[in-house]
Computed example of a mutant assay.
Amino acid sequence: MLMRHIVLFRRKGEVAKDAALEKALTQRMALLGAQIPAIQGWKFAANELSRPICWDYVLEAEVADAKALDAYLFHPLHQALVADLKPYFEWAAVDYTT
């Protein structure tokens, strides 16, 4: 069994769209999975349809267990990215065992 970590991201409503910043942040998100040893699977994608219910991006990570998830969540590279994401994006997460 693995633990799956799903995160949805969208630009905060009160924040003006900044295409260059958003591209830089999403590129960092896309590459982070290869930089943290605890991560066994990593998918990052942009939403393709324009519907009011949709968020802008989805991240799917797979790790061995809750301990490995903590290793990822508290990894310095992840913490640095979170600090840079906070002013621009809001997010929602779900963690579950497969």
Rank of each mutant, 00 (worst) to 15 (best):
K43D: 08
V63E: 10
E14P: 00
T97A: 07
L31R: 09
L81Q: 05
P87Y: 09
W55E: 11
E48R: 05
P52T: 04
Q79I: 06
K17F: 05
L73P: 00
F9K: 01
W55L: 12
N47K: 05
D95S: 12
A64V: 09
E48D: 03
D56K: 01
R28W: 06
E60D: 07
A24P: 00
L8V: 09
A34G: 14
V7D: 15
V82I: 15
A24F: 01
L85E: 11
L49T: 10
L25S: 01
L31C: 04
Q79L: 13
L21F: 02
Q35R: 09
P52G: 07
L77N: 13
E48W: 00
L81E: 05
R51E: 04
G13Q: 07
A66F: 03
M29V: 08
Y72H: 06
D65Y: 08
L85N: 11
E48G: 12
A38C: 15
M1G: 09
P76I: 08
P37Q: 09
V7M: 13
Q35I: 03
K43G: 00
F9V: 02
L59R: 15
L25R: 01
E62Y: 06
A83V: 11
L49D: 03
D84N: 02
L77Q: 15
G41N: 11
E90K: 05
F44L: 05
A24W: 01
A19M: 06
T97P: 00
L73N: 11
H75I: 04
L69K: 05
W55F: 13
K86Y: 01
A80P: 03
N47P: 03
P52A: 13
A93I: 09
K23S: 10
I6N: 07
L73M: 08
P76C: 04
A92F: 14
I53P: 00
P76F: 12
L31D: 13
R4M: 10
I6F: 08
Q35C: 04
A66P: 01
L21C: 08
F9A: 01
V94D: 02
H78A: 07
A46Y: 00
L31S: 10
I39T: 09
L81V: 04
G33C: 03
S50Q: 05
M1L: 05
M29P: 06
K17H: 04
D95H: 14
V58M: 11
W91L: 14
I39H: 04
G41H: 15
H78I: 08
L2Q: 06
A66T: 08
A38G: 14
Y88W: 07
D70M: 08
L8P: 03
T97G: 01
N47M: 08
P52Q: 10
A93Q: 14
Y96D: 09
D84Q: 13
T98I: 10
A83E: 15
L25E: 00
A24N: 02
I36S: 01
S50A: 07
A83Q: 15
A46S: 09
Y57H: 11
L77S: 12
T98V: 11
Y96L: 11
C54R: 06
H75L: 04
R51F: 00
Q27G: 10
K12A: 09
L32D: 05
L8C: 09
D18C: 02
E14S: 07
H75F: 10
L8Y: 05
L59N: 14
